[in-house]
Amino acid sequence: MSSPTISQLLQNDGIWQASQKNNLRLAMSTGYAELDRQLHYSGWPQGAISELLLSHNGIGEIRLLSPLLARLNQKPGYITWVNPPYLPYAPALVNQRLKLDKQVIVKTSTVQETIWAAQQAMASTASSAVLVWLPKKVLGNEIRKLSLAAKAGKCWGILLRHQSLSQQSSPATLRVILQVRQQKHLLSIIKQPGGWSGQQISLELFPERINWNPFDVKYWPVFSPEKPQVRTPQMEISPTAKQPQWLFELQQKSMCFSEAIIDKSQRTIRSVDRPKQPYH
């Protein structure tokens, strides 16, 4: 009587059958076509835990996730950031089309608090995505707890952990290592639902890079008391060191100048005219 056991096995969510490519599982596009093609669900899975393994915090994980978060922001639901390593910077988030009033940042002091807060957020059905930063520890049971909470809340649970944990097993549904090799972001999928894993792709997460022009070391601003200062041509109109005499006089004379802005790119001085009133 083997048939009941097989049907029991098939009910298990973790069992994948090659015959039926299951498209019922919900996923949202990562925003990177190349990555979508490699993922069997063509996106970040909903109601499950995705794990990003990073060599360093700030290697590009926000840029990788921001298309997902921006899209989730268009619908109701908060995005909860649990225990981020640094302060998220509002102007950058706005640049990446995230809505600030939908971001909730939770500060925690212990791992238990982090897990508890993340669990609450995931199970609440009011948080569409929960980003959790975890310390460099093996946390199998805790991650299982989180994956149950994410399933209950149908949210996108994203764990951010250190790369050294890639060899440890984890109950997360999707596991991706994010690295940088020769100025290229390299993604290795070490576990993913719906099919084989082991894909490797390289992504350009910072396409604006081509607009940046590297500076030679001799133009870097330095301060050395003995030697004359080495400066870039732009440094000439530094308002601190050498203010042009006429600008100084202008500031002294005029009371209606509330602000003088030195626009470095145009090398001109813009004055902000305000109606004449006593400067207090």
Partner: peptide
């Protein structure tokens, strides 16, 4: 998703009022 802040209240009640903030 629901637009409710229940889970935030819960977290604040347990971890302190300054544990959650927005930008």
């Amino acid at each position: 998703f629901k637009q409710t802040t229940t889970f935030i209240n819960k977290i604040q009640a347990k971890l302190g009022n300054d544990s959650c903030y927005q930008l």
